[in-house]
Every structure is written in C-alpha cells, then in structure tokens.
Nucleic acid binder design. Sequence first.
DNA 1: GTAGTCATGTAAGAGGTTACATGATTAG
DNA 2: CTAATCATGTAACCTCTTACATGACTAC
Lengths: 211, 211
Amino acid sequence: MSLRHALLAILTVEPMTGYDLVKYFDGTVAFVWSAPHSQIYPELRRMEADGLVEATVVPRGQRAQKRVYEITETGVEELRRWVGELHLLEPERDPARLQAVYFEWSTYALIRRQLQEHLNHYTAYRDRWQRFLGDIDARQVALLQRRLKRASPAQQPAIAAFKRFAFEGEVARAEAEIRWAAAGLELLDHLESSGVQLVGESPLTSWLASR
Amino acid sequence: MSLRHALLAILTVEPMTGYDLVKYFDGTVAFVWSAPHSQIYPELRRMEADGLVEATVVPRGQRAQKRVYEITETGVEELRRWVGELHLLEPERDPARLQAVYFEWSTYALIRRQLQEHLNHYTAYRDRWQRFLGDIDARQVALLQRRLKRASPAQQPAIAAFKRFAFEGEVARAEAEIRWAAAGLELLDHLESSGVQLVGESPLTSWLASR
DNA sequence: GTAGTCATGTAAGAGGTTACATGATTAG
DNA sequence: CTAATCATGTAACCTCTTACATGACTAC
C-alpha cells in the first residue's frame, strides 16, 4: 500500500486538497510513484475513515466547496512505521526485458524501433531527473522549500540529501537502460551484417513445418 | 497481457503441462516475469478458449490425467505480433525508491538495514544471473538447447544472442542497484558523523509541536 | 461567453497475491 | 508406509487502468 504512504508523506508538508495531491503526482512524484486521480480521491476517503487524515470542508467561491486534508498524529505514526519497515523486493515483471528474451520472433526493423524508443524514453527521463537534481541543490523545488522551512536546522541536511539520493538512483537506472538499449542496437548491426536470420523474418509456414 | 505471451514463448519449444510451465516460471523465467500457478492454470484455459493453444488430455499412471498444451498456428501468430509491438514504457512504481525519498522519517539503524537488504538482494540476483549467462554460453540451459535443436542453423546465433542480451540487462540493472545502495550506506555514515538528526530519531511530539 | 483550471467523483475490468483445497504418483 | 513430487484447481481481495461523468470558478 505505497500510494497511501506517498500521500501521507506529501501531507506532512502542509494540508492540501485531493486536487493538489493529484498535481504533485502528475509532476515530480510520478517518477517514483504514479497514480491517477481516480485512485487518489477514493484512497483519501479510506485514509480518512482509518483516521490517518482529517478533512475540512472549505467553501470555494459562492457555491462550490473543497475538502482540505490534514495528516493526523496517527497518520504520522503510520508514515514512520512504514518508512522504517523492511520491504522485501518485489518479483521482477518487466515487459521490455521479456520481449527482448524473445526478439528472435521479431524483425530487425521492429527490434530497432523498440530499442530506439527505449533509448529515447530513458534519455528524456534521465535529463528531466538531472535537471531536477539541480533544482534540489538550488532549493528551487516548492514542496521541498516548504518542508525545509518547518524542520529544525539540524534536520534540514538529511531531508534534502535523501531526496537527492533517491533521484540519483533513478538517474543511474535510466543510464543503465540507455547503455543496454545502445548495446542492443550494436548487437543488431552485428547480427544483421553477419547474415543471421531471425525467425520473425521468415514465413510462419516454415516454422510450422519444422515441428 | 505479458503472462500470456511468456507462456506462448515457452510453448514454442515443445508441448508441456501447466505444471511444467509453473516450474519454468519458478526457475529462470521468474527473473524477468514471475507468475504463481494460480495465475498460470486459469490463463492456459483462457488461451485454449481463444485458440492460442490446444490441450490434449493424457493419462498419468492408473487413474490420474494431465493436460498437455501445444501452441497453435494462431498462437505463434499472436506471439510474433506481440514481440514486434511497440510497448510504451510503464509508469514507474518503485517502493524502495519511494521509501528512500522519505528516509528522514526513519532512523539510521533502520535505513542501514533497508539498504543492506537491498544490496544483498541485488548481489545474489546479479550472481545468479551471471552464472546463468555462463550456462547460456555453454548451452547448458535445457529449454535453450531444445529451442536451438528445432531452429535452422542460420537462426541459432540470434536465439542465444537475444537471451544473453536480455539477461545482461538484468545484470546491469542489479549492478546499478548495488552501487546505489552502497552510496546510500556511505551517505548515512557521512550524515551521522556530521551530527545530522533524522526526524525519525526524535519523538513524535516534537514534530507535532512544530506545526 | 468561453476556455482553461479547479475540483471530485463512480465503475467496469484487468492483472496479481494469498490462501484454501485436493488427490494421484513415485522413490525410498 | 511415507514423504516428496506431480498435477490442477477455486476464491477472496487488492491495486491499478481506463473510461465515463459532472459542475463551479476565473481570467480574458
């Protein structure tokens, strides 16, 4: 139940609406944990029922209202419990890698397209994170600024350092994926120039006949 | 629906029972795609209903029976379609990284335990894959051997090369995680010796008072 | 007025986890 | 005979995706 804890963590900065939380998820948080609004609103209601947050209904203009959520003492306790909890790592389930295991069923052109897309995606991803690391160092991240303002001076270095550390992990992961895709493109060139056939290039009937 | 395609890919080697497929998933396949038997058996039934596989009921001993699944022509077509399909990369959702973003809520001891566990897990993971890469090169992998036997000589190099390539990606990912966790442990030493406090070390009341 | 933003939901369905459940076969 | 292995399911529950749905507020 990490969505719940991501929400709790953001709410330690200040009380906010579900809509605000949706925005943070669509912005920076989505790089480590993404969630659509259809998941966030019901979860906030459940968290309220469980006493982790408290909602205050606030008027908005003439007729409309909004629900501002504030983390409770129970909520902070739950966040502390979760963040100290030992999470066993989850089973791998990576469609891109699974597809790569069986690339021989595809064609050179389609594998190139796939690996190029992989490379582009992780390059954009890495660049975006790297800019974000700069923003952390310059204290230009809105949530972080407000978080630091409420913390005692002796705690401030840790707060920024762990955010940096986590996002450095994402950058490293992206770089590993970039190198992997580039190596794959080289492998393709090598195989193709060596005249190696792919199963996916030959007609289906030839494989069926070989059974 | 990658489970379905992982099953199809394994069934291109030879017809087998659900139990055999479960074993392959618990063995090597689980490193790129894991699935429990409670997911595999119903999926095979659905694939049968969709015409991707055909089951033959075979007697086993005196009274018992087993269902041997064979991939159909439609199944091979579907595998070829899927492996050539462009998969957009999925949203990130990484509990370990999310936890790291909020490590300040924990304690030095608990973070060390978490990062050490991360390091141990990925070290074991990398070692296991690295041995497996050796097995691929030596053609000592049962499924791969049988797969190669059915392929034409011009196709054999690609089949082994792509498996190697995919698992090299897993090794690279594991190594990036090992370096990340090691850097985290160093960061902790540095913060702690600099006298930096964590929010999680101080009593809950002090944080509540600061609001 | 109208477009963009603020704001909050519901619901069907896919995919995955965990637990419960059963029974035959084979090797020692 | 007994333990390990072979073999196959069901079911409740959780999480996440995708689509449908609505309406007020604000700046131009």
